[in-house]
């Protein structure tokens, strides 16, 4: 599992992905952690197949008993099907996930972990002194979906938005936006069902100060590519991929 530190301040952000031992028929996904002095939040913990390499990678940054919080943007298996295993590994953890999906996500196994439902209009969660904004991103692509914005690190973990599928050895940041666009187009046209929802999200996100856009699949966007992505997504007609 490749680990890339994407923010280093009073707290840290680390991106995990490009697992070279992943079975070929499982899609590659990015996982993130927000590490504070005594706590660790796992964003999009990933699928069952990825659990062992992911947990082993986290142990480079935090001991098991400090993995206190998990976040799932939506209910898909590549996002959170590992829950049943985390549930047996962690004795004192919370899962922040959409209220709407509680009854669905619990199917993955959630007995010792506390399910903290996120209301439709989002909320703020605190990991020690770090405040994270949970931003609604409904219908992008799941009908109930959230992103995580860290105003201090200026990172927006944007779930499925901005996702692309890449080779295992692909760089973690977009290098040539014009080339990268072609890897995203079909996915966004097919997976994002609503231009109206996309519009609402873009309006909301344009007001945020963002250095890094961190999606759940593919490469991250930084610097000017953030604005390039928003402009490109703004002009893309979605819900047309069939």
């Amino acid at each position: 599992m490749k680990m890339t530190k994407i923010y280093e301040g009073a707290h840290q952000w680390v991106m995990f992905g490009r697992d070279e031992n992943k079975p070929d028929n499982i899609i590659d996904s990015n996982q993130y952690i927000v590490r504070t002095a005594n706590k660790c939040l796992l964003l999009e913990p990933g699928g069952t197949e990825l659990f062992a390499p992911m947990m082993a990678a986290v142990l480079h940054h935090a001991p098991v008993d400090q993995i206190t919080d998990l976040f799932a943007s939506h209910q898909d298996p590549d996002v959170i099907s590992s829950l049943g295993l985390w549930d047996q590994a962690l004795s004192n953890a919370k899962l922040h996930a959409p209220a709407l999906w509680e009854g669905y996500i619990r199917n993955f196994g959630c007995e010792s972990i506390e399910y903290v439902p996120i209301p439709d209009n989002g909320e703020t969660i605190k990991i020690e002194s770090v405040e994270l904004q949970i931003i609604p991103a409904h219908y992008l692509h799941s009908p109930c979906n959230f992103h995580v914005y860290d105003p201090q690190a200026k990172i927006l973990m944007c779930g499925s938005v901005g996702s692309a599928f890449e080779a295992a050895n692909a760089p973690v940041f977009v290098e040539r936006f014009d080339v990268h666009v072609e890897k995203m187009r079909a996915y966004h046209q097919r997976m994002m069902p609503s231009n109206q929802a996309k519009r609402a999200w873009i309006d909301r996100v344009r007001n945020l100060d963002i250095d890094i856009l961190a999606p759940q699949h593919g490469r991250m966007f930084k610097g000017d590519d953030v604005k390039r992505f928003l402009d490109w997504f703004d002009s893309l007609q979605v819900g047309t991929g069939v």
């Binding site: 947990m55 990678a57 142990l59 480079h60 935090a62 001991p63 008993d65 047996q88 962690l90 004795s91």
Partner: peptide, 27 residues
């Protein structure tokens, strides 16, 4: 339980050399 135990053993193996590898012993 058995599936989790097997995965946890795998974690320990993969985490060799990690700063907090020892914390896996408890789970």
């Amino acid at each position: 339980r058995t599936a989790a135990y097997n995965r946890f053993e795998q974690v320990a193996k993969l985490a060799t050399g990690a700063s907090y590898a020892d914390s896996m012993q408890e789970p």
